[in-house]
Write a protein that binds this DNA or RNA. Structure first.
Lengths: 343, 343
DNA sequence: TTGTATGCGTTATCAT
DNA sequence: ATGATAACGCATACAA
């Protein structure tokens, strides 16, 4: 009828807007908006009309417009140091399962164990005005720390426990885990215990620290039996490091690996070399990846509740987003020693 | 000076806006906008002023406002069937590495091998007006298909090759891969060849199909030697299926597994049972995961170029986003048989 | 090279 | 219960 009213500049996407839905339904745009959002005060009759119109036009909201108008996004940013580690995938999945049903969008960032990359991701994701932040550990740049504070955005820290206080965190004591590893190996009568770690993120270091402390207490600590490398953790690397260690320190009779993939590599390499596990050397892993219990021999490991951590952290986020403060800001999810055949 | 001009309704986030940056820099908002975006026609002197002002105020753009005003987001949606499979992680990483430097945001969706979930993700992500879509394979709901078409949004399909034509796709022939597997095993003199697959997505099925065809041509096909299950692929499952197959069909002398984790599980279980690989039974995997070459015996596998696929698909997306059509719409990245010790 | 006017699609506010 | 008006923060179009 009035084609000139439909003049759209070339910038528009051509997708139907709320206005068009409203017109088709014979209501005002705001009523259409309310109807579609399920806001209470709309006559059921109108709701139906609007829904029909929306369906007919194949209408989908424009998130950008919605976010701008409401000054609120529905996104929660999750930053993890790696995706090649199944560990964090499980955590991410759990977070999704909690947040998605509540209407939140999960934005995933992988910073490859780089503090600078994490800072960049953070800066970038801030432009989306996320509602909340789920971060891994406490080791980050000063800038990153300031950004988080300055934006005053709800934040939950995962995987480790806050040594200070006041931060919402869900995890377990990496230090204790290292101690537990040492105690187990010592209880097996081992005397020459080694720690092998890769990646060298703060949590790996912390586990090594706990391990060392326990050895020192037992009078068994030997600095030559610590093998650390910044290279990314992998099965292949585990085999390499195992060989290197056994050749340079043949007296070693127990090894705690900072990650299961390293331990798995060691098991395979041991088999190739004819080194008996656990007779000659006990092998203990960390994280208890799904495949570990199927190794030959079955790998003893410290099982970490990464799925539960994700779930719980997401739930904390939910209460923070609801404007409440969490009752228990630091929650220790613990870990579990799984003794199998390799120790 | 004029505090009433700063009256903000309670909806605002309180974050500095382009207006405030412009005021501080003593220029108009649009000049500030241009300066920050690096648009050519701004005096370098002003650019500096604006940047200083922005830094001082800790300004970050509001992505929602930008997207709304420009009627364009900078996001590209990538949908994968799984994250627990290292395979897709590597593809995602490659995509990131191509797209991020060009200023694109990568939105990751995991649909857990569920067509319905993929459709939901698609519907949801459409509200973000993404610039492009990177999808996995061709097997999706009719609704999903229509959404993609209706929105007329650049789309690149990964992992498989379009049996029809006209779609931009980067992958390799899953069918050929299955055939190659069979031919290799046959060339080793094996007579009783089995196919074991899990997950049963279209590509797994396609590989089985290719395998079967090759066996039929060689007159070696035996339907009892196909073991398929919809359960998710894992090392543990591989061991189970291996045992089951060897017990019910002891004559089997070669097995092609649809996934390396299954094959790895088989290798471990074989060792436990004292079944000699490859003497009694040859084991061939698929995908060549990083750990496969470290197995005992080292796993023969078909190596798939998932990283290259991601990179290439992202590059195609880039040219599509630039408004050009790609010279080579269907690109076959091939695959490579890696013969090691297990066959 | 810079600025003015205007609009993006939606929702908050306040009336009715 | 519904609607008119304005605003969210930024970028496009066009003018100067």
């Amino acid at each position: 009828m009035t084609p000139h009213k439909n003049d759209k500049s070339s910038r528009t996407t051509g997708r139907p807007t709320l206005n068009e839905v409203a017109r088709l339904a014979g209501v005002s745009p705001i009523t259409a908006s309310r109807a579609l959002r399920g806001v209470s005060s709309v006559a059921t009759e109108l709701v139906e009309k609007v829904q029909k119109a929306a369906q007919e036009l194949n209408y989908v909201v424009n998130s950008a417009a919605r976010a701008l108008a409401s000054a609120q996004s529905q996104s929660v940013v999750v930053l993890v140091p790696s995706l090649s580690n199944l560990l964090f995938i499980e955590t991410l999945e759990a977070i999704h399962q909690v947040l998605r049903p509540k209407g939140f969008e999960v934005l995933i960032g992988n910073y490859h164990y780089s503090r600078d990359e994490e800072e960049n991701l953070l800066r970038n994701y801030m432009t989306y005005q996320p509602r909340g932040l789920l971060l891994t550990g406490f080791d980050r740049t000063e800038s990153a720390r300031r950004m988080i504070e300055a934006n005053n955005i709800p934040c939950v820290y995962m995987m480790d426990l806050d040594p200070g206080a006041g931060l919402n965190c869900v995890g377990f004591s990496q230090l204790n885990a290292g101690e537990t590893a040492a105690q187990h190996l010592i209880s097996r009568g081992r005397k020459h215990l080694a720690y092998v770690g890769a990646q060298l993120d703060q949590r790996t270091l912390l586990r090594g620290e706990g391990f060392r402390r326990a050895l020192q207490e037992a009078g068994l600590y030997n600095p030559d039996l610590e093998l650390l490398t910044p290279r990314p953790s992998s099965v292949g690397l585990g085999g390499e490091l195992f060989l290197q260690l056994m050749q340079s320190q043949p007296q070693v009779d127990a090894i705690f690996f900072g990650n299961d993939d390293l331990a798995q590599g060691a098991l395979l390499e041991a088999m190739r070399c004819g080194i008996k596990v656990p007779e000659q050397v006990a092998v203990l892993g960390f994280n208890d990846l799904p495949s570990s219990e199927h190794m030959v021999p079955r790998l003893s490991s410290i099982s970490t509740p990464r799925e539960a951590i994700g779930r719980r952290a997401a739930e904390q986020m939910l209460t923070l987003l609801a404007g409440n403060s969490v009752a228990e800001p630091v929650v220790d999810m613990g870990f579990e020693l799984r003794v199998r055949e390799s120790t």
